[in-house]
């Protein structure tokens, strides 16, 4: 394994490096996944462009709209009091990734750009309707996350393009549940994200770890109807979710067990979101640190 490492200081410098040898360039945005592939020889780039000196790590609220710089380390995000208070499901999903040591390195953009089928963040960001701001020299475009992830470890990122930020239009009552063989530092066998839209009241369900590409499950979502679902509707939606997606068997779980987990976790996640339906997202988090460190201005901002 040998490659040259470029550490551009500005986006423009980065675009220059990316343009030189686009076919044989790997982007390093934390490296917790890429380095494994390099070590295993699964990728053999001539150039690795490290983004660690680029600025994109801000967490910015604009009314209900949340924009997170793609290079924000996951540990910074899970520690962010505003995020924990206003969008606790995302803080929880981030906390579920790897170990704390890993989360100091790993970035949000890196997680999305690597497009792992077992990502703990993609399912939740799908139900939160996240959008990605993609930049390349003199050019910028916005893509919905479901347009961006096109397959297992495949994205719509064009050659020479970088993820600048991720935007969530508004916090929603939402939940992320997962199962693994062990508590920490493990890959989820199944991840289930559920959110309830506040304007349309429509339910959204997405799965991770079961299909090559994380997907929403419209047929199961529909069964939950517009309002608070009855227990029977939850049961039917969970069954539908467990039957619908094209599940895989691998060394982490069999297809049958994944279906079982999806059934159980969808039921639990929907119930949790339904139970919190009146508790709107701006409800203060029980975390004391969150209360202390959030300025009054941020606290008064409406989440809707």
């Amino acid at each position: 394994m040998s490659f040259s490492l470029a550490t551009p200081a500005t986006p423009d410098e980065a675009f220059e490096f990316l343009a030189q040898d686009p076919e044989a360039t790997a982007i390093l945005a934390g490296g917790t996944d890429l380095l494994l592939d390099l070590e295993e020889g699964l990728v053999r780039p001539r150039t690795v462009v490290s983004l660690r000196r680029l600025p994109w790590r801000e967490i910015r609220w604009n009314g209900p709209r949340l924009t997170i710089g793609s290079l924000a380390p996951l540990a910074d995000l899970e520690a962010d009091a505003g995020l924990r208070r206003r969008l606790p499901s995302l803080a929880k999903a981030i906390h579920a990734v790897g170990s704390l040591a890993l989360r100091h390195r790993a970035t949000l953009g890196g997680n999305l750009g690597r497009a792992s089928p077992a990502s703990d963040l993609i399912p939740l960001l799908l139900v939160l309707d996240a959008r990605l701001s993609l930049v390349r020299r003199g050019d910028r475009r916005e893509l919905r996350l479901d347009e961006f992830i096109v397959g297992s470890r495949r994205t719509a990122l064009a050659a020479g393009e970088l993820i600048e930020s991720v935007t969530i239009p508004a916090p929603l009552p939402s939940e992320y549940l997962w199962q693994r063989v062990r508590l920490a530092n493990d890959i989820s066998q199944v991840g289930v994200a559920v959110a309830r839209g506040t304007t349309t009241s429509a339910w959204r369900i997405a799965l991770g770890g079961v299909t090559p590409r994380s997907v929403r499950l419209p047929s199961a979502e529909k069964l939950l109807g517009p309002g608070l679902p009855a227990p029977l509707a939850m049961e039917l939606a969970a069954q539908e979710a467990a039957q619908r997606a094209p599940f895989t068997t691998d060394k982490r779980a069999t297809e049958a067990y994944r279906r079982r987990l999806v059934y159980v976790l969808v039921k639990r996640a929907v119930a949790a979101v339904a139970a919190s339906a009146d508790a709107l997202p701006e409800t203060p988090s029980p975390s004391r640190t969150a209360k202390k460190s959030v300025p009054a201005k941020a606290r008064s901002t409406s989440a809707r």
Partner: peptide, 28 residues
């Protein structure tokens, strides 16, 4: 609870690393 070596029918070890050969972490 979690440790097992997995082998394919071709005699290949399927989990030759600490990601999928799971020793307990402190949280466990």
């Amino acid at each position: 609870l979690s440790e097992e070596t997995l082998w394919g029918p071709d005699g290949r070890m399927l989990n030759p690393g600490l990601l999928d050969y799971r020793i307990p972490t402190l949280g466990d």
